[in-house]
Write a protein that binds this DNA or RNA. Structure first.
Lengths: 345, 345
DNA sequence: TTGTACGCGTTATCAA
DNA sequence: TTGATAACGCGTACAA
């Protein structure tokens, strides 16, 4: 009995070549550089490709060409709509250019992030996009050794001449805080994501502090609660903050999800927002327009970052273009959750 | 000048073998089957692996082993929180088992979905999870030819003995509609995602119709608007539906995002929800608890589906286990957006 | 324009 | 337990 009749093997380049009566090299060229082949042979080859239902083997191709046409993205979590949208835009550009996206999420865990990065490189990713600057230097060394182009997203500044596409988290948070201060707020508290190994979170807190200093206030006295990423965490953190005396007139939140939690907690405590206490967010996800009162927040150009990250990566790999640092604009979106404090004390 | 000093090559198995004074076979075994090797050689090999900072080449490994330890997921969109969460759970199980996830989104476009599926298979995915049953038969043929295990998620029933993990969309929607009918609703309208090549959406509409029939009402008369997936689309669809006369007392929505849009539109029209009109959702994403009034909706076990899909896929590939059909329970989550109609006419 | 032939870095078979 | 060595399927100098 012939084994082949059982697990019928997939057609290979060889099969196509034999059937089309050309060499494997010609088949390969037909597939990769169609214009290096006469129309007659191209048609004949393509015909047998279709007839045999041939599909190139990715692994073999990657091994021989030392290129995968694959680009990776390691993000903190898919559950944050803002990263999901960035990815969607990232993928769209790649697909339009015949490339493929690899995604992994680290659950905000530096160790998992490192594993995921190494894994992607082992799989031959031609380039990679990472969120934020904060990670062990050895990871950067590793990437440099392998000569893998990297793009740091979500921040407008990077070290060591690395490419980045993002915005100034400090400036954005500062601008929002200044607006609040100009409305009369003096006692400002902050609910932030954990700032360890998260430069975006740290920068946003720093931005609020900078604004306080600008106004001649004591920045170090600003109450700060760090917590994880979820509505429930925002609620709990808000309760913690409001247990203090005197209470703040404004609670700034490092992202919209925490802010929504804060609003929920406030309402459960019988507080009017923004009458009794103002609350601001950061990101401007859809949630911000749904919650009542709608969130005053900072609009982050997530889609643009995803798109540009893909374009930069493709350019660095295919055209050997130089690393670039792109710092996008952000702006405060004024809705209803921030207003002048009732008690101007 | 030696070229090698410029683009220093990465260490290979050969390098490790030479350095550790063993054969490449032994190095390979040390890495893949540590217990088939004496402790002495194992230690020596591992030491040089570390010293050279060696990482196996994924492509070469996949080519030789005919296995990638990679599992793909093609979803309609990452922007829907419910898919994002399913993926997060899917990835978690894979990573815990030393496997890797590949993700692609199709933007609800059948052609893109087909491309993405073929792409994943070409990249050697050992298994794949797809959302829903609806797709061209040739795609299933293709998958069967390649003998790639497939799991259909988001639905509790599948054809041709294929594995699936999901729930009964018809029954879930029917249950919700029956609850509304028992409250006194008679004029029910439906806002759905496009039902072409989307069996989940179609099933939910069918469930509502079934409930109407159960109650002796005219199911075919139910107003139905199909639209895309976004809050804005929900708003527009609601406006369309309320332009009719007589107006419905309940607008059921195929998912929570559309329902949130409907609520927004209702409020902009000066209608009280649920006083003037009731609105229901489907999915039970976080948004459902944030919007006011909070959404009465169907809770979908997204995390469980993601987890189980990964476990089933691993079992089918590694343990050659048989395909299974898992039908999970759903339940209606009663909140404030559904109440007895004021006008029982 | 086309073909020959070698190399890519592993795994796996078989013999020792 | 270990070692030689033949695949694995494709890209690409180089030659024709």
């Amino acid at each position: 009995m012939d084994t082949k009749s059982y697990n019928r093997e997939l057609p290979t380049l060889q099969d196509v070549a034999r059937e089309a009566r050309v060499s494997t090299a010609t088949v390969s060229r037909t597939l990769n550089f169609p214009n290096q082949v006469t129309e007659a042979t191209r048609l004949r080859v393509m015909e047998t490709v279709r007839a045999l239902n041939y599909t190139p083997n990715f692994s073999a191709r990657a091994l021989a060409a030392r290129r995968t046409n694959t680009y990776g993205a390691v993000i903190p979590t898919m559950e944050n709509a803002i990263f999901a949208r960035g990815l969607e835009a990232f993928q769209k550009v790649l697909v339009a250019n015949g490339a493929t996206m690899l995604v992994a999420s680290s659950s905000y865990d530096p160790q998992i992030e490192e594993d995921q990065i190494r894994n992607m490189i082992a799989r031959g990713a031609d380039g990679i996009v990472l969120i934020g600057n904060d990670r062990k230097p050895e990871i950067y060394r590793f990437l440099e050794e392998r000569q893998v182009p990297v793009i740091i997203a979500w921040t407008g500044s990077s070290l060591a001449g690395r490419s980045c596409v993002g915005f100034d988290n400090v400036a954005a948070a500062r601008q929002l805080a200044l607006k609040a201060i100009s409305l009369g707020h003096r006692r400002i508290a902050f609910i932030s994501a954990h700032t360890v190994s998260n430069d975006r979170a740290r920068d946003r807190v720093a931005g609020a502090r900078a604004a306080l200093r600008d106004a001649g206030l004591d920045a170090d006295a600003m109450p700060l609660v760090e917590t994880k990423y979820s509505i429930q965490c925002g609620q709990d953190a808000f309760a913690t903050i409001m247990a203090a005396d005197p209470k703040p007139t404004l609670v700034m939140c490092g992202n919209d999800v925490l802010a929504v939690g804060a609003i929920k907690a406030a309402q459960e405590m019988g507080l009017d927002v923004p009458g009794d206490v103002s609350i601001t967010g950061f990101d401007d996800i859809e949630l911000a327009t749904i919650v009542s009162p709608a969130l005053t927040t900072v609009h982050v150009p997530h889609r643009q970052m995803g798109r540009l990250a893909a374009e930069m990566l493709l350019a660095e790999v295919r055209d050997k273009s130089e690393p670039r640092q792109i710092n996008l604009e952000t702006h405060v979106v004024e809705r209803q959750s921030l207003a002048a404090p009732r008690d101007q004390g």
